[in-house]
Lab assay of single mutants.
Amino acid sequence: MDVFMKGLSKAKEGVVAAAEKTKQGVAEAAGKTKEGVLYVGSKTKEGVVHGVATVAEKTKEQVTNVGGAVVTGVTAVAQKTVEGAGSIAAATGFVKKDQLGKNEEGAPQEGILEDMPVDPDNEAYEMPSEEGYQDYEPEA
């Protein structure tokens, strides 16, 4: 019985440690998101679009440190934060509304985080759909 109880105690310690790591990862992701939003706020009209992409990228980098179902929630929060940063930029006159959601080359930025393969159960990952990809044929 002692062996059984000791095993359960060790398992509990492992769960607590994993929860603490997840909590730490979420806190880091939130900190990076805040950094990115402050970065966007300090940019001029020309830099705002690039700044919004930076927020998304920093958040995406930190999301990889967070495991399990938390990833889905962090990704949703990050996307809403990026959308909010863009709205703030438009409201303050840093950028025109028609410039939001495009990178410096004018290509749409939507789907940055949505296409990231995420499995809350950590069982399997699927690649994003290939609808947006084109076949590449090298020139002879």
Rank of each mutant, 00 (worst) to 15 (best):
residue 42 S to Q: 07
residue 84 G to D: 13
residue 97 K to M: 01
residue 63 V to M: 02
residue 122 N to E: 02
residue 30 A to I: 07
residue 21 K to G: 00
residue 84 G to V: 05
residue 28 E to N: 08
residue 139 E to Q: 11
residue 59 T to N: 02
residue 98 D to Q: 10
residue 57 E to A: 07
residue 106 G to D: 04
residue 51 G to E: 01
residue 62 Q to N: 05
residue 17 A to V: 03
residue 98 D to N: 11
residue 3 V to Q: 03
residue 58 K to Q: 05
residue 3 V to H: 15
residue 73 G to K: 13
residue 73 G to A: 04
residue 11 A to E: 01
residue 138 P to C: 04
residue 71 V to H: 03
residue 130 E to N: 08
residue 55 V to S: 03
residue 51 G to F: 01
residue 11 A to Q: 00
residue 128 P to K: 06
residue 47 G to L: 13
residue 129 S to D: 04
residue 15 V to A: 02
residue 96 K to R: 04
residue 118 V to T: 07
residue 83 E to I: 05
residue 49 V to K: 10
residue 106 G to R: 01
residue 10 K to V: 07
residue 18 A to K: 04
residue 78 A to G: 07
residue 75 T to E: 08
residue 20 E to L: 01
residue 1 M to L: 03
residue 124 A to S: 13
residue 135 D to W: 05
residue 85 A to W: 03
residue 23 K to R: 07
residue 60 K to F: 05
residue 106 G to V: 12
residue 81 T to S: 03
residue 71 V to G: 03
residue 11 A to W: 12
residue 63 V to Y: 11
residue 119 D to A: 02
residue 139 E to M: 13
residue 13 E to G: 04
residue 64 T to G: 05
residue 39 Y to N: 09
residue 103 N to H: 15
residue 9 S to T: 03
residue 83 E to D: 05
residue 46 E to S: 05
residue 66 V to F: 13
residue 15 V to N: 00
residue 130 E to F: 04
residue 5 M to W: 02
residue 63 V to K: 00
residue 59 T to L: 05
residue 91 A to G: 11
residue 26 V to A: 03
residue 7 G to K: 01
residue 128 P to S: 00
residue 27 A to W: 11
residue 102 K to L: 02
residue 98 D to G: 11
residue 88 I to R: 02
residue 25 G to M: 15
residue 6 K to T: 03
residue 62 Q to F: 13
residue 52 V to Q: 01
residue 7 G to V: 14
residue 109 Q to F: 02
residue 7 G to I: 04
residue 22 T to H: 02
residue 126 E to D: 14
residue 33 T to F: 02
residue 86 G to R: 08
residue 3 V to C: 09
residue 36 G to S: 15
residue 115 D to Y: 04
residue 72 T to L: 14
residue 127 M to R: 08
residue 92 T to Y: 04
residue 47 G to W: 07
residue 16 V to G: 06
residue 107 A to L: 10
residue 115 D to A: 10
residue 51 G to L: 09
residue 31 G to N: 14
residue 46 E to K: 11
residue 53 A to H: 01
residue 103 N to L: 06
residue 48 V to W: 11
residue 47 G to N: 13
residue 112 I to H: 10
residue 34 K to N: 03
residue 9 S to Y: 03
residue 72 T to K: 06
residue 123 E to K: 14
residue 33 T to K: 07
residue 58 K to S: 09
residue 8 L to W: 14
residue 76 A to G: 13
residue 67 G to K: 13
residue 103 N to E: 06
residue 63 V to A: 06
residue 59 T to E: 01
residue 124 A to P: 11
residue 91 A to P: 08
residue 17 A to I: 11
residue 123 E to R: 09
residue 57 E to Y: 01
residue 62 Q to G: 01
residue 88 I to F: 13
residue 138 P to K: 08
residue 115 D to M: 09
residue 114 E to D: 09
residue 9 S to V: 02
residue 104 E to R: 11
residue 39 Y to D: 10
residue 140 A to S: 13
residue 103 N to M: 08
residue 57 E to N: 13
residue 108 P to K: 07
residue 115 D to R: 08
residue 79 Q to H: 02
residue 110 E to I: 06
residue 69 A to Q: 11
residue 86 G to P: 03
